[in-house]
Structure formats: C-alpha cells, structure tokens
C-alpha cells in the first residue's frame, strides 16, 4: 500500500518536471538580455536579469491588442457555441436511445475534415456570404469546431439529469423550453463551465481561420501575432518570442489552477455514459 503511494508521488514529480520544465526554461530565457539570449544558452538562469525583451515586445508590436482581440473573439465564440450546443445536446439527450447514439456519432464524424483543407472552402463560403474580414465570419468558422465538440461533451452531461425531475416540473406548469431553462441548465452548470473552458481554449489557440478571415492588422489574434513575430524577420527573434510565450501561457495556467477542480469534476459526468 505504502509502496504504491510513494511510487505515485515519484511518477507525478517526474511528470511535473517534464510538463513544467520547458515553461521554466522559457521563463528564465525571457529575462536574459539582448545579446545573452543567444550567447548564453547553456545555463538556465540569466547572468543579468533584464526586461529588455518584454519592453521590446510591448513597444514594437501590438501584442496587448492581439491579446485583447483574442480574448474577445474566444469569449464570443464560446458563448455562441455554448448556446447552440446546449440546445442541441439537450434535444439529442431527450430523443434518447438509438437516435441519441447515432446523432452523437454523426457529430464525431464532423471532426474528420482536416482544418488545413477546410480553410479554403470556408474562406470562399464566408466571402460569398459577404462576411470576409468580419467578426461574424470568424465566429461562423469557429462554430465548425466549437459546436460538434461542445455538443458531444454536453450530451453526456445532460444525460445525468433525471427525467423524473423534469416531468415533475412540467406537471407544475412549466413549458418544455421552461424546463430546459429553469431545471436542466442549472443542474448541469458545472458541465457547462468545463465545456466552455474547452471551447475557449480551442478558440484561443486557433490560427489558420483567424489568419485568413480576419485580415486587418489591428484586429489580429494572438496566434497570428505570434506568427508575425516569429516569421516576420530575417533573424529569429528568440527573445520576443520567449517574452510573448510567457505572457500567453502564464495567464492560462493561473486560470487552470483556479478551475482545475472544475475541469476534473466536470468531466466526471462525461465518464458515466
């Protein structure tokens, strides 16, 4: 019994080193000075602690604007996606039985198209709808991965809501949409949060669609902004990239540490399907 416990801690410590190590190295490197970043690479810690690259990044690029844009697009896409998917997931659950299974599988199938090959058809579609270079156009493309993913996860949450409660509520005079709004949704709130987080992260990390659909420089997303920093110059801008990485990754991790209980707890519902 004891041995297993020690082994567990050991495994977790090793895994944590692997998981967190690269981040640690990036953080250390981001504080190295202008020339040190490429000359002093063998040692982990900077010889002289410097904020040069952070200043460089924030002064030379519109990094903070990209962050703001990404936050805005990802939030909107999450909200819209959650509305559409929670409606669909609830309905699919209430269909029950074989239909439910088939529909969830159809949803999985929608994942199969490689995004790199969807991009051109989507761009044609969005342009034909007159939505190129607009937020609705981008949101539409984001729905292609948000809706299937969220619906798929939410189906398993709604399944945990006992039908008996809903029936009781309907006898009390609630309409069916009323039951959904006032009974089912509050019951799966933790699941909604967990799913929303997945949706948010997927949108936050998305690159290709935002590159093609949003073309205005000041409206670019963080991913595209990072790409510009990395690929825009004749030399590698290690320092700028390091600083940018830290600024993108650390907030996500703080966010994770706040909600990690939710992620694990929320997903539990997904397990008992």
């Amino acid at each position: 019994m004891k041995k297993g416990l020690i082994a567990s801690y050991l495994i977790l410590i090793i895994a944590s080193i692997f998981a967190a190590g690269p981040l640690l190295i990036v953080i250390c490197a981001s504080f190295k000075g202008q020339y040190e970043i490429v000359s002093n690479t063998a040692s982990l810690l900077p010889k002289v602690f410097s904020l040069y690259w952070y200043r460089d990044l924030l002064e030379k690029t519109d990094f903070l604007i990209y962050v703001r844009n990404s936050l805005c697009y990802s939030l909107l896409s999450t909200i819209l996606g959650m509305v559409i998917s929670s409606l669909a997931a609830y309905a699919i659950t209430r269909l029950g039985g074989k239909k439910q299974k088939q529909l969830t599988r159809v949803i999985v199938m929608t994942y199969m198209f490689p995004p790199i090959l969807l991009a051109i058809p989507y761009f044609i579609l969005v342009s034909n709808l007159g939505l190129a270079n607009s937020l609705p156009g981008l949101l539409l493309a984001y729905m292609s991965f948000t809706v299937p993913f969220c619906t798929y996860l939410l189906v398993s949450y709604f399944r945990t809501v006992p039908v008996e409660i809903e029936d009781a509520a309907r006898i009390d005079g609630l309409t069916r949409p009323g039951v959904f709004l006032h009974i089912a949704l509050p019951l799966v709130a933790p699941g909604l949060v967990a799913t929303g987080i997945f949706a948010f992260i997927n949108a936050w990390n998305e690159f290709l669609y935002s590159l093609l659909i949003i073309s205005s420089g000041s409206r670019q997303t963080v991913s595209v902004g990072l790409y510009s920093i990395k690929g825009g110059m004749e030399t590698l801008q290690w320092g700028d990239m390091m600083a940018a990485s830290v600024l993108v990754v650390i907030p996500s991790i703080l966010f994770f540490s706040l909600i990690q209980k939710r992620i694990a707890g929320g997903l539990t519902a997904g397990a008992d399907r």
């Binding site: 992260i201 993108v248 990754v249």
Partner: peptide
C-alpha cells in the same frame, strides 16, 4: 490540486508556442 495544475501546463501552450519552444 498542485499536481493536477502542473500536469496541465502543456495544454496551456498554443501550438505555435509548443513548436517554437
């Protein structure tokens, strides 16, 4: 909680930062 957060770290990396790092 601590270990769960640490293990989740790679997931906070956008793909471009994964490859760059």
């Amino acid at each position: 909680g601590l270990f769960r957060t640490l293990i989740l770290i790679p997931w906070a990396f956008p793909m471009i930062i994964v490859t760059f790092t």
